[in-house]
């Protein structure tokens, strides 16, 4: 299964990005082999960052997402796609993936307040 982690950089040693929609990168990883594909999430968008990011997850065929906070718009896309979301910690991506493998990450059901597509740093 492919797992996506929101990240501040494009390597496994970069810290997980607390934001989902406005994350700097998404690292699509195979937790068994730790092979990754980095997706730059800096695309200029007029809004709806969370929705776009969630759609990217769907298009990439990921089976789970690890991130900090998810807005309600992104959450409803991920829910519709039946992609579970797990709360990671502000540590390197590798550490989060290891915690995920051990089943140590908590599933996120709630969302942070929406900002109607204007984006927000948290």
């Amino acid at each position: 299964m492919k797992v996506a982690v929101s990240a501040t950089g494009n390597t496994l040693e970069n810290i997980m990005d607390q934001r989902f929609g406005r994350a700097a990168y998404f690292l699509i990883a195979d937790p068994e082999t730790m092979q990754i594909k980095a997706i730059d999430n800096q695309a200029a968008s007029a809004g709806g960052a969370g929705i776009t990011a969630a759609q990217t997850m769907v298009d990439q065929g990921v089976g789970a997402v690890i991130t900090g906070n998810v807005g309600p718009n992104a959450m409803s896309v991920l829910k519709a796609a039946e992609i579970p979301v797990y709360r990671g910690t502000p540590d390197p991506v590798r550490k989060n993936l290891e915690a995920f493998k051990k089943g140590a990450l908590e599933k996120i059901e709630d969302t942070v307040p929406s900002h109607f597509g204007m984006g927000g740093p948290k």
């Binding site: 204007m118 927000g120 740093p121």
Partner: peptide, 15 residues
């Protein structure tokens, strides 16, 4: 236009 996104951008830059 797009000042809401700009607000986000300002906060991001400061971060």
């Amino acid at each position: 236009e797009g000042s809401g996104k700009l607000v986000t951008e300002v906060r991001k830059k400061l971060d």
